[in-house]
Design a protein around this nucleic acid. Structure first.
Length: 208
DNA sequence: CCGCCGATCTTT
DNA sequence: AAGATCGGCGGG
């Protein structure tokens, strides 16, 4: 068998092509479902994205960017294809990919992934995860497993800055892509802007 | 398996 | 005062 176990912190080789700037330079509601199935590579590990949510700037009361640019949300108002990383609940980091489209301040939150490389490294970074399927099942779990934090806010993933990339490995579109309302918000709770792989054990929370 | 609650700190 | 969360604990 040809499984390569990556235990170091160097670049993880994931065969495929980096998503181009034009991919991100669209409405986040278009980008989000197409990010599901793509691979996020960072800090010696890689995950296949299985769950995302779109946030729509000034048209979305649930978005951090709803009330216009602030120091925290500056990246959301910058060019598409960059990481917006924010700190929440006093201890967690969450990562988004900035998008284009007609509404400024749009981005896609990466909520969960299936570990595909650097699993030993991720286990070491997430010692409380009982099973491999829990390693990246949640937005803050995923950033912890991939060692993404505030220092990565603003990095250009199209350019592969700091070794962070999003790769299309040629896997055909999933036949179990599902859509629901977003998780963990208290405003604009009725907008169906969460996409995930139905039945996939790597998705966060309980099936919905 | 499910629900509750505390942690911990930035932003509003 | 609440927040785009997580994990430990208690109960069924």
């Amino acid at each position: 068998m040809t499984t390569s176990r990556h235990t170091g912190s160097g670049p993880v080789g994931v065969p495929g092509t980096d998503l181009p700037r034009s991919f991100y330079d669209r409405d986040a509601r278009k980008v989000a479902p197409e990010l599901v199935g793509r691979i996020l590579v960072a800090n010696g590990a890689a995950v296949r994205i299985v769950e995302v949510e779109a946030y729509l700037g000034a048209e979305d009361p649930a978005a951090h960017s709803y009330r216009g640019p602030t120091p925290r949300t500056a990246t959301m108002f910058g060019p598409p294809g960059h990481l917006y990383v924010y700190f929440i609940y006093g201890m967690h980091w969450c990562a988004n990919l900035t998008c284009g489209g007609d509404v400024p301040g749009a981005a896609v939150l990466i909520r969960a992934g299936e570990p595909v490389a650097g699993i030993e490294l991720m286990r070491a970074r997430r010692p409380t995860a009982r099973r491999d399927r829990d390693l990246c099942a949640g937005p803050a779990r995923l950033t912890r497993a991939l060692a993404i934090d505030g220092s990565h806010d603003g990095v250009d993933v199209v350019a592969g800055e700091r070794g962070i990339r999003v790769v299309d490995d040629g896997r055909p579109p999933p036949d179990n892509l599902a859509c629901s309302v977003r998780v963990g918000i208290s405003r604009a709770t009725d907008r169906p802007w969460r996409w995930y792989l139905a039945g996939d054990v790597h998705v966060s929370g309980r099936p919905r």
